[in-house]
Amino acid sequence: MTATSPLASAVLLQLGPVPITRPVVTTWAIMAVLAVGAHLLTRRLQARPDRRQAVLELLVTGIARQIGEVVGGDPRPLLPLIATLFVFLVTANLSGLLPGTQAPTATIETPAALAAVVFASVHFYGVRAHGPLGYLASFAKPKLIMLPLNLLSEVTRTFSLMIRLFGNVMSGEFVIALVAALAGLFVPIPLMALEVLVGVVQAYIFTVLATVFIAAAIGGDGPA
């Protein structure tokens, strides 16, 4: 019997040098569900929306409005990334509640990948808004002495983004697994309800922080 770390991702299959781990497969499943579900939901959109379409429009326009309030401008360019982050995180965080399923965000690689995408997006939108030199110059504001701190903050805030999501989701799953192993099948239900709340809140926090970071890069105030 070999003891495996709960923090390690199980490799389900190996494609050459590329190991396909459980979070990747779960993510593919989530992607499939979301894509197919979105396609099914948006097949017959009408000018006069029914209840299903109204909820869908409310979700999309609500996210867009939130982005617009943070950015202070047109939310359309950021909508695909930010809304996808939120939808994916909510789905991924809650997927751990399904029996036999582990949330992809409960392993460090997925939050790291999301944080890396946010990190890259921040600089992409910053450069696009101000140009390379203008964006680089924003790191030296308000004083040149702030340059090292700003550069350090770019790394630390991305790291904190990753760790916050990973720690909350992973700890929640650990607690639920421990309680279920020790106390029985139905005892962890209140904890699972709490985990639903935690999963949604963490998805919201991650998304809002990503939006704030990108908005700060676009707005020219320098790195937040």
Binding site: V18, P19, T21, V24, E109, T110, A112, A113, A116
Partner: peptide, 8 residues
């Protein structure tokens, strides 16, 4: 696992 990070 860096491969998982990249794939994700």
């Amino acid at each position: 696992d860096w491969w998982t990070l990249a794939l994700q």
